[in-house]
Every structure is written in C-alpha cells, then in structure tokens.
Nucleic acid binder design. Structure first.
Lengths: 220, 220, 220, 220
DNA sequence: CATGAATGAGATTTCATTCAT
DNA sequence: CATGAATGAAATCTCATTCAT
C-alpha cells in the first residue's frame, strides 16, 4: 500500500533479497515458498510483504537490481578504455567474474528466459535488455570504427550473452564432468576471433541461401 | 503391466505432446495445467496419464524427444561432409532452422535451465548434454586436425549452443524491437570467426590474469 | 441392465469373487481398484461389470455369499444335535474354523462395520444379521429350556460374534506377539460358561445401577 | 520448525477433532472429506493442515487420543479396587459407558479393523493394543491368583473387547429392531462367568479335536 | 460375452496473501 | 514495523464406469 520503497531503514530488505537469491537458485521460482525465504532471511512471513508487493515482485526486483549492479560495474570499468575490442574484452571478463562469484545468480537469471509466465517475463526482459545494450553499443561502435566486421550489433550482443551464460552455467552447476574454467581468456577469444585459426584466409564458409527460414510455423 | 508406452494405437500420444509444446511454451511448466493441455489436445484429463506418468514426465519426454529428433537430423546431415568447419557450419544452420521452425520449442528448452527443480533439471540435462556432444565432437575433431585453434571443446560447444539459443530466442519471442533474422550466416560467421576483422594479426587481446576467479563465493 | 444373475455360464463370476476377496482383504474396500481385481481374476476390467453392477455390489455380494455359505454350513451341522449348549459349541467351532480358513474373509468382514458409508453398511448389515440369527435362535432355545440363564438372546449373540471375530482377527492378522491359537476350546468355554446356569453361588458380581447410561447422544 | 503441535493457542485443534469424529462416524474414513470436516469445525480447509499432517494423521490422532483417554479413565478407576473380578467388572462398565456416550466413536473405532490400508492399520493398532492391555493384565492377575480359570489372557482380552464392541455397536447404530440396552450388567455377567472358576462340574463341553485348524492359509 | 482405452468428477494438499495483534 | 495463524483457490492425479469394437 505504501510505495514499498521508503521503508528501507534497517537491512531487512537486503537480507530478504539475499535469502531470495539462495532459495530461488536452489528450487526455482515456483519451487520456492515465501515461508522458506522469510525463514532464511530471519524475518517473519508478513515482513516480506512490507518490502515487496508479491513473490513475483521479489523475484523481479532481485533480477533487476543484480543486473543493474552488473551494468554499473561494467560501465564504470569501461571509462578510459579505448577501442571496441578492449572494451568488449573487459566487459566479457567482468561479466564472467560476476557470474562466477554467484552461482546462485546464474541459476536465477537463466531460470527466467520464457518459462515463468508473461508477467515475470515482461518485467525481467526489460532489465535484461538494458544490460545487453552495453554489449550492443560497444559492438556498434566497433562496426562503425571498422574494428569489427559488419554484423547486426544486437544479434551479436545476444550471441555473446548467450555464450557467456551457457558456459558459466555449465561451469558452475554441472560440477562433475565439466572442466572447471577459471580463466575466461578462451571465451573472450571465442567471441572476438571465433574458432578458426587465423593464419589462412578463411572467410566464413557459409552456405548463405541453403538454410534460410521460410516460414516460422505456428502463429506465423 | 501396461508400460505406458505400448498403447500407441491412435495418434493420441503425439497430439498430447503437440498440445504440451503449445501450452508449455506459452505459460511455462508451472504455469501450465494438465487440464489445459488435455483440452488443447482434444482428450480427457485422465488420458494424459495413460501416456505419461506425470506432468513432469510429459515435460521431460517432450524435451527429450525433440532434442533427440534434432540430434538425428544434424547427425544425418553431417554424413559425407568433410572438415570440421563445414560440419560445424552445417550443424549451426540446422540447429537454427530447427529452432526457428518452432518458436514454442525454443521457449520450452530455455525455460528449463535450472529453475524447475532438481527432478526436472536432472532428467533434461542428460538430453541436452547428449545433444551438445555433437558440437563437442566436431570441435574436438577440428582442434585435432588443426583446423580450429586450441580450445576446450566442451566449453566452445556450450558457447555456441548459448549463442544460438539466445539469438533464436530473441529473434522469435521479442517480436518488437528486434530485427527478425532469417539468415543465420552472420551467426555462423560469429562462431567460426568471431567479431574482429580478419585482415590484421589481431591475436585476441586478452588480459589473462586480471580477471581470474579466485573463489566462487557461496558455499565454497 | 440384465439382471446380472442369469449369465453365470463359465466360472468367471467365481473367479472375480475370489480375486475380490484377496484384494479387498489386502487393501480394504476403498484401497482396492476394480482394475487390480480384474487383473487378479484374469479378466478384463469391463467383464467385472457384466457380473456385478458396481464395485459396491461386488463387495456386498462377496460378504453376502460367504456369510450365507457359513450359515448353511452351520445350520446343516446342527441337524441332529440336541441341546442348546451342544448346538452353540458346534456353531462357534464351525465359525472359528471358517474364519481361520480364510484370513482374507476375516479382514473383509471386519473392515465393514460402519466405516464404509451408508450404502455398504445397510446392505451388508442384513447379511450379517441373518447370520447372527443362528446364534440368537440357539440362545433363545437355551433360555427357554432353562439350559441358559436369562439373557437377551440378541445381545448375547452379538457378544459371541464379537468375541469370535476379534480373537480370530488378532489370531490371523497380528502375526507377531499374539499366540497363535489353533484350538477354539478356550473360546468356546469362554462363551458357554457365561451363559449356562451355574450350580454354585457366584451370581455375577455386578454393580447394576452405578453405570447406567443416562444420555447416549454425543455432544449432549 | 513448527511441530504441528505447539500452535494450540485457541481451541481450534479440539474443534477439528470433534468435527472429525462427527464426520468420520457418519461416512467413514474414505467417505469423509477434509472440506466437510473443516466446515463442520468452522475453520478453513488449510487450517486442518496446520494442526494435522494429513487426513490420515487426523484420523489416527483421533483414535489414539480417545483411546488414551478411555484407558486413563479406566486405569484411574481401578485404583483401590481389589480382586480381578472387581476390576474387570469396573473396566467393562466404564468401557461400555464410554462407548455409549459417543455413538460416533464406536463407529470410528470399528470402522478401522483392517480395512483402511496398511498405514492406518499399523498406527491405530498400537493404540488399540495399548488399551486392550488393560484387560489383559487384569485377566493375567486373575489367572495367577486363581480367581479366574486358566486361559490365555490376551485371547480373553480380545474376546471381551469384541463382545463389548459388537454389542455397543449394534445397540447404538442399529436403532430399529435391536433392544436398546442401558444396563451392562448382562454383558458383565457374560464376560465374568466365562472366566471365573466354577465350583460345580460343567467343564466346558468342547469337542477339542474335532475342529482343530490344520492349515490357516486361505483357499486351502 | 469380453475388452480396455477413454473419461472427468472429485479428493488431498500446497502456498501466496491477509490482517489482527 | 513485525508477525504468523488462518484462509481458500487451484492443481495434480486417481479410478469407477462406459462403450465402441
């Protein structure tokens, strides 16, 4: 009823968010209960509703705030850097580091890509888009200065985000069988330079027409 | 006695899977109800349980069967191709086409990356891993023949899978604002050759040590 | 729709009843399913409905027929016997033997004493009453000839039935801890000597007034 | 954390138990629904689950607590009494009175004798056994002092419990046709004089061997 | 007569949210 | 501000019964 933003006196709000991160990452959005989160946070069930409007609001707030935080870290570190390659390298590495510092957040951010219902999807999409725009603007700069090849900046931004996310996810979650990676150099290299060796000519061996998508089925 | 798999007389099982794909993609796993799925399939609620043990089993079966199908398509098309680059190109394009033919499946496959609880996660992870191994083995081949640079094959495989998935997801879902991509050439190029222009030397400009991850926080 | 009594050609009906006895005794009325019973009987689910109108009808038929069978056995053996004591002794022993020959029937008959809902209760009560009337008439005869003391015959009949049932139930079901009884002599003795006139003193040491029940309504 | 037993502030738990007694006695365990019970108790459906873990737990708790109550009443009244006969008389009368004061409880206690599935059976059996042990120990005392004849105490205890239960059940339930008994004297007499030593002749007129049970397996 | 695939009413149980204290 | 007992909508899953073959 109150605006839920002017209470913030004690550290309760932060404790709830921290608890929510733990629980959501363990059990997913629907598998988690407000009661568990409240208990983990050391507060009463009703207290959660003093700081967040609903379970959904809690989840979305968590994603938004963490992504905003990540964006701020990245943007701050980009100051003073020159060249799109430099900036992108830096961005990827910071992103990697951030994900690797919170196994929980990787789970949470990936658990929400379309499977949580319209309400959640729409609100978190915005937060995600705002973050990915950092990548997008770097790539745009690179293509404009000629440092990068001609490529749709937004597509490339999502490709990079996807690459980082999936690798980080497997690196953290799937403990056994996956070689634990602590150095993101290979990932940076993959994004900047791809898989192919450099010494040849090697323009991408594509078959441009063969796989064009004609109709995208249902609800065309 | 009935193994839930030997009934198969009519096409009911397929109809239920098709309906499940629709509904799950719209509302996610927990947001969907068996009743909706049954109605969409044109069968009674109880009929779903004649073909699938539970809602979870239905979801997992859907993911497993579609991924197996995709894997078979890819593997079949790789026959006769020579060179890791050629194979990877082909694989990415087929993957792209498959995803673009079913907006629903992209949602479903991405809605399940850690947010649905242990039971679902474990069973679908296997299916996913089995599929990604196709990429992995191609990359391994490429690194061994020297066609590809030295890189951890599994990491690269997840990076590619992540890139395709995120781009396909945004391409299909986020209708407004995102330029619809019908040609995967740029994506193939990104994976094979990265973002940087080729004419220079340009070994990846990494800062190998600066971002090493020391401790991965929680529950470490 | 047909009268369900004129089909009876093959032994299917008997097989279903035998299977029902097994399953009902293991899992109780509500815990058993028609499917299990049909499978145990080696017939199809629909076949059960050719011989019995419903699950309830199957259960009731089972109780009725077995009790009728028991009654016939008892009545037949009573022919030629003289004296109420002799007759009652014989009856109890036959009853005991019958129960001990079918652990399953004891369970079934005791699982239905008021806990199965009005429909079942009413129909099986009749069968039970008709059987207990055998005891009742013997006791009546005994009280009239003076062999037994003055007692309400129906009450005594139920007391005996209850004694036999509970002892048989514990004897059969509760395997561990309960001494297995193969000889009903002590039980016969318990029942008979409570009824027979006594030559000695020892009129029952009751406190006739002290425990009279004033109101039998609950929540009075 | 909440042990489901430490809430107990208001009388809600008792109200639910009272409502459960009513409903279970009317419709049996499986015929009753939590919704009915909650409504009867004047609480919400979810509230039942605040005090009891499940429907089964509610039923079992009801049986356990009432039987414990009955046992306490009986044990307390036995203090100061001398002689097994006296004690048994008292016990039977109190038992009778207790049953007659709650028609509902008689139904409930008798509805659960093997027909409700393993889970229920096992938990309630204990409660019943603990109660019947009161009879058993009195009888044991009687046989040891010579007041009672030689008899297996546990068997006799079950015989008495069965006699009381069946008579009480018919007395209360089967309103028409059965003479309502308010005085348990005849029942006490029935039980006692089956146990007491007899000065006269009249050793039980049994036919010890004729009815021995050879095999107790069903369908022999 | 026999079957078993199909159905859908209905039951238990969970949990986000409220509100009196 | 904080709490947690109470609520009831809603979801999964079961199973007696039907009916086309």
């Amino acid at each position: 009823m109150a605006d839920k933003g002017d209470i913030q006196e004690s550290g309760k709000r932060g404790m709830i968010l921290a608890a929510a991160l733990m629980i959501f990452s363990e059990k997913g959005f629907h598998g988690s209960t407000i009661e568990e989160i409240a208990e983990e946070a050391g507060v009463g069930k009703g207290t959660v509703y003093l700081y967040f409007e609903s379970k959904t609001d809690l989840f979305v707030s968590l994603v938004e705030e963490r992504l905003r935080e990540l964006k701020e870290i990245v943007v701050k570190h980009l100051e003073g850097l020159e060249g799109a390659g430099e900036k992108l390298t830096e961005s990827i590495k910071l992103h990697w580091k951030f994900f690797n510092q919170s196994k929980e957040f990787v789970r949470v951010i990936l658990s929400d890509l379309g499977g949580l219902g319209k309400e959640l999807d729409e609100r978190t999409r915005d937060a995600r888009v705002r973050f990915i725009e950092v990548f997008e603007s770097i790539i745009k700069e690179g293509t404009e200065t000629g440092e990068f090849k001609e490529i749709q900046p937004r597509m490339a931004a999502y490709a990079i985000e996807g690459a980082i996310s999936f690798v980080a996810f497997e690196n953290l979650i799937n403990s056994q069988g996956f070689p634990s990676i602590s150095d993101p150099s290979q990932l940076v290299d993959f994004c900047l330079n791809g898989l192919c060796r450099r010494e040849g000519k090697g323009e991408a061996r594509c078959f441009p027409d063969k796989y064009k998508i004609e109709s995208s089925e249902s609800e065309g």
